[in-house]
Amino acid sequence: MITLTHFLVVSACIFCIGLYAVLSKRNAIMILVGIELMINAAVLNLVAFGRYDKVNYGGQVFALFAIVLAAAAVAVGLAIILNVYRKYKTINPDNITDLRD
């Protein structure tokens, strides 16, 4: 029997994996992948909770919007990273440090 708790544990794990990918930043694409994992953890949460909200389906609607927005943000992010690669020939954020105090 899969209960709500299982969903929450899985989504918490996905969120932590995503956060790790973001914080260990070796590669800008990996950071985007990490962000995507974090958003999907939230989407899983929303859908799991949405099962108990039978009146408004707020969670499911929210999940749909979240997926769309994530796709839009990632599209913009990839375009910008491509642009950075053309200028710097690298996408490791640690090596791109023209702007700093």
């Binding site: 800008a28 642009n83 053309r86 200028k87 710097y88 023209d98």
Partner: peptide, 9 residues
Amino acid sequence: SEAAMKYVL
């Protein structure tokens, strides 16, 4: 382009 990348990430 660097500013944009930092911002978006």
